[in-house]
Design a protein around this nucleic acid. Structure first.
Length: 889
RNA sequence: GGGCUAUUAACUCAAUUGGUAGAGUGCCAUGUUCACAGCGUGGAAGUUACUGGUUCGAGUCCAGUAUGGCCCA
């Protein structure tokens, strides 16, 4: 067998993945050919502009673990991949590129030419992130790869829009929207991040109309918006201003007379207690303006420059206008105090530029009717969050849901299927309406189509529906694979995406039962990946770890396993690059354990256990199989991975393989055959259990193992049935007996290490084991113990005289003596035994105190009291042995 | 301002309904013909953030305090 002693993932991952893909292993069986039980997962489609970050890697791993497990369990398993066209992000990337490369803006190019460029860019760069998911080993059905601007999805978007339109849930309104002056589009509340900035609070003095020379002072962080002021508001109970209510003041520069009104929302303690009201450019002022019938004046152009409503400041940028206004006010002696403050500035997620609230004409969806069934789905348990606490976040949003602004002033996206006649009467249509054609309602000619596009989420909320064929009549995939079972995603898109998908399920599948409309049974919110200092990983902060670098260095399996081992359900994880060592080392350990097995398979194999360790490891295998299965069934990935890690490393490698070595090379042929049989069984099952976590490594070893066995496997491991533990039995007696063996071996090793006898010197041992079962265990396993402990001889009895010049270790009630020469230093051993005696003594005190407490004895469960009594006896025996032997040093 | 979450060994994290606080990394010592030095063996290391409460018994439940992180307004 020619096998490297090191696992080299980079050599094998590519070919194995290509092989799976070529064999169609990622696709569910055709209808009628599988088990009929489906398991479906729809990937959260990453942006086409995206590159894989650690959050993706974690989420991809989680989904792939689930999908591979369910596939091996025999479900007709489908994982739908795809990407999101990501309107704003993608348009911004391409615009920037075109401007840098050709010096052209999109306006100069025109809409059609620009969109052609975006499509070019998408074809060229849009699959990078999906390629990266392949590198990670994700077993998506690539034949069903979706894109939110595919013809099918585009059609679905139109049908959904028209459906809502006909239900009267879509309306147009002049509303204050969050305007991104750089990208020149409205963005939703959910696409804004607040950023703490240093700024100033300017106090401005507005002259009172009726009292020349007197002023009312307002405080603002955005003096340039004064050009749009249509009022001043004070708190109704504020004594300073009561006498001014109902009067007016004059707005400097524009000489506009504006009323002073009373409004509860004003905080008398902030600034001067009087606030300027700019209904056109501030959400709170918009509300105030509504309450007091103040006019709305828009002073900004779409690009953020001051409009003609700004009088002398028209045409200036926001920043320049601010400077000139402050300077002008100072000149007029109307500038008061200027305070330095820090305040929260709303920034656009995409362009990072300050958001300007402004009034504009937008399309909205009424959300309240859509939210109701989404709330019910959770309350009925059709939808469950993991961890469950996210339910609250979901519910809170839905119960306070705001109407959804769905229009965006972009070019890249789904253009609104809305046309207008010459009277500007709009109509929505699934089919394109020709210009000049008759408006279906008014009969007048259609003169234009709405130029806006839909919010990106207006397509991704249909993702699980449309990727399965909705709204096509009789869509087979939809019937077979919807609803899906599992959605894994990040907490920040519970509102943006998760809640809306549930709404869409209820809005667009009226023919189904309520439970069958809900798009996914479980919504798993995965951990947030933080850097080593507890900060969120992000590109802008530059603290990210590139998963591709880690895959390059350690292999995809190591990255996957490390991530799963590190992330407890929903608990954020701090990650540093060296964390991937753990997965990497484990993969190497598995590789070498498998190598060992394969190098020793020549000869008969007997699947039946012949020895204690055979029965023990098979019993452990049964237990770990059950544990891993139960954990994966309930999405406890970390528990499953940890159980496997311990089983493979601590049970199989450290004990079973070590014990098997002697038998494989010994002359007891039946024992050797049993060892080979058990090694094979354990390795096969372990590979199956590990496969969801480390698919490449296990598939490769599966193939190599069958090569060595000269057996053709029934299936590649990816499709081979999940290990069930069939034919294995739990064997408590074997586990107990193995405990004695491990304890005695450990005691000898301790003596050896602490007295510096050396690892390679055979020593005699004398053992006092008072209990019958312990002596029986020693009798039956003398060879094994002598082998592992490297003994030259072993004597034992119920009692034993401590040999002269011997070191001793105590395992429970068992004393293990190792006679030494005079020259050996027992100082360290003595320290360790004293340390141990101290700890045992403390535990005895604790136990005694407990048992002397009447309340404990009377009120605690009898079994608990009994266990405590037994424990005390054992501890006392151990302490007595320790003390007796310490006295002999 | 409201909500969620966390605080356990030097570091990163576990601990299934309340019942003996564990692992990986790192550290110290030691060992390489016999799967793996990416390894083995042994060892050291914790007042479970703090203050109270409930309980026979609290890392775990309750209240409060402190400090971080996230979300919402």
């Amino acid at each position: 067998m020619d096998l490297s002693t090191r696992y080299a993932p980079s050599d094998i991952e590519g070919p194995i993945y290509a092989d799976w893909d070529a064999k169609g292993a990622f696709q569910p069986p055709a209808e009628g050919e599988g088990s009929g039980k489906t398991f479906t997962v729809a990937i959260p489609p990453p942006n086409v502009t995206g590159v894989l970050h650690m959050g993706h890697a974690l989420n991809g791993t989680i989904q792939d673990v689930v999908v591979r497990h369910r596939r091996k369990l025999g479900f007709d398993t489908l994982w739908i991949p795809g990407t999101d066209h990501a309107g704003i992000a993608t348009q911004a990337v391409v615009e920037k590129m075109l401007y840098q490369e050709q010096g052209q803006t999109r306006e100069e190019m025109g809409r059609d030419a620009f969109l052609a460029k975006v499509w070019d860019w998408k074809e060229k760069h849009g699959n990078i992130i999906l390629e990266q998911f392949r590198r990670l080993g994700c077993s998506c059905d690539w034949t069903r790869t979706g894109f939110t601007m595919d013809p099918g999805l585009s059609h679905a978007v139109r049908v959904a829009f028209v459906e809502l339109w006909e239900q009267g849930l879509i309306y147009r309104g002049a509303r204050l929207v969050n305007w991104d002056c750089v990208l020149q589009t409205a963005v939703s509340d959910d696409e804004i991040e607040m950023s703490e900035r240093k700024g100033k609070l300017w106090h401005l003095r507005y002259p009172l109309s009726a009292k020349p020379g007197e002023h009312i002072v307002v405080a603002t962080t955005r003096p340039e918006t004064m050009l749009g002021d249509t009022g001043v508001a004070v708190h109704p109970e504020d004594e300073r201003y009561k006498h001014l209510l109902g009067t007016t003041c004059r707005l400097p520069f524009l000489d506009r007379e504006i009323p002073i009104v009373a409004d509860d929302s004003v905080d008398p303690a902030y600034g001067s207690g009087a606030v300027k009201v700019t209904p056109g450019h501030d959400p709170a002022d918009y509300e105030r303006g509504q309450r007091h019938n103040l006019p709305i004046i828009n002073i900004l152009e779409k690009d953020g420059k001051i409009s003609e409503n700004g009088g002398p400041f028209a045409g200036l940028s926001r920043e320049e206008a601010r400077k000139q206004i402050v300077a002008g006010m100072e000149e007029l002696e109307l500038l008061g105090e200027v305070e330095d403050i820090s305040h929260n500035v709303p920034l656009s997620d995409r362009s990072k530029s300050p958001i300007e609230p402004l009034v504009s004409e937008q399309w909205f969806v009424k959300m309240e009717p859509l939210a109701r069934p989404a709330i019910k789905a959770l309350e009925k348990g059709w939808l469950q969050f993991r961890p469950a606490r996210w339910s609250k976040v979901y519910l809170h949003w839905l119960e306070n849901v705001q109407d959804w602004c769905i229009s965006r002033q972009l070019w890249w996206g789904h253009q609104l299927p809305v046309w207008y006649d010459e009277d500007e009467v709009p109509v929505a249509s699934v089919e394109d309406l020709e210009l000049g054609a008759a408006h279906p309602k008014t009969g007048k000619p259609i003169v234009r189509r709405d130029p806006d596009v839909l919010d990106t989420w207006a397509s991704s909320w249909l993702w699980p529906l449309a990727t399965l064929g909705w709204p096509e009549e009789g869509a087979k995939d939809l019937a077979r694979f919807y609803p899906t079972q599992f959605l894994s995603t990040a907490q920040e898109i519970i509102y943006l995406w998760v809640a809306r998908m549930v709404m869409a399920g209820y809005a667009f599948l009226p023919e189904r039962s309520e439970a069958e409309r809900n798009p996914f049974a479980t919504c798993y919110i995965h951990a947030t990946v933080l850097d080593g200092k507890g900060k969120r990983m992000s590109k802008s902060a530059g603290n990210g770890i590139d998963p591709l670098d880690m895959i390059e260095k350690y292999g995809a399996d190591a990255v996957r396993l490390s991530l799963v081992l590190l992330t407890k359900e929903g608990q954020d994880v701090r990650l540093s690059p060296d964390r991937f060592e753990q997965g990497s080392r484990f993969c190497n350990k598995v590789w070498n354990a498998a190598r060992f097995v394969m190098m020793n398979l020549t000869g008969e194999r007997d699947p039946n256990p012949a020895t204690l360790e055979d029965r023990w490891i098979l019993s452990r295998l049964k237990a770990v199989t059950a544990e891993v299965s139960a954990a994966l069934d309930t999405y406890r990935f970390n528990d499953a991975a940890n159980a496997l890690y311990r089983f493979v490393w601590n049970d199989f490698c450290d004990w079973y393989v070590e014990l098997a070595k002697g038998r494989l090379t010994g002359d007891d042929a039946p024992s050797a055959a049993a060892a080979r049989g058990v090694l094979t069984r354990v390795l096969k099952d372990a590979l199956g259990l590990l496969h969801p976590f480390t698919p490449f490594l296990t598939e490769k070893l599966w193939e190599m193992l069958h090569g060595t066995l000269e057996e053709a496997p029934d299936a590649d491991l990816i499709l081979a049935p999940w290990p069930t533990g069939a034919g294995l039995s739990a064997d408590q007696a074997a586990e107990d007996e193995m405990g004695v063996l491990q304890g005695v071996v450990g005691a000898v090793r301790q003596v050896r290490s602490l007295t510096m006898i050396g690892e390679r010197k055979r020593v005699p041992a004398v053992i006092a084991a008072p209990r019958d079962d312990e002596r029986e265990a020693l009798t039956r396993n003398a060879d094994a113990i002598q082998g592992l402990a490297y003994l030259e001889s072993m004597e034992f009895g119920a009692t034993a005289e401590r040999p002269a010049n011997s070191a001793v270790s105590v395992y429970g009630g068992v004393e293990v003596f190792v006679p030494l020469g005079d020259e050996v230093d027992t100082g360290k051993l003595k320290d360790v035994l004293e340390n141990r005696a101290g700890k045992v003594g403390a535990q005895i005190q604790g136990a005694q105190k407990k048992l002397e407490n009447k309340n404990f004895v009377e009120r605690a469960e009898p079994s608990v009291v009994e266990a405590e009594r037994e424990r005390l006896v054992e501890l006392e025996v151990e302490l007595a042995l320790l003390e007796r032997n310490l006295a002999g040093f």
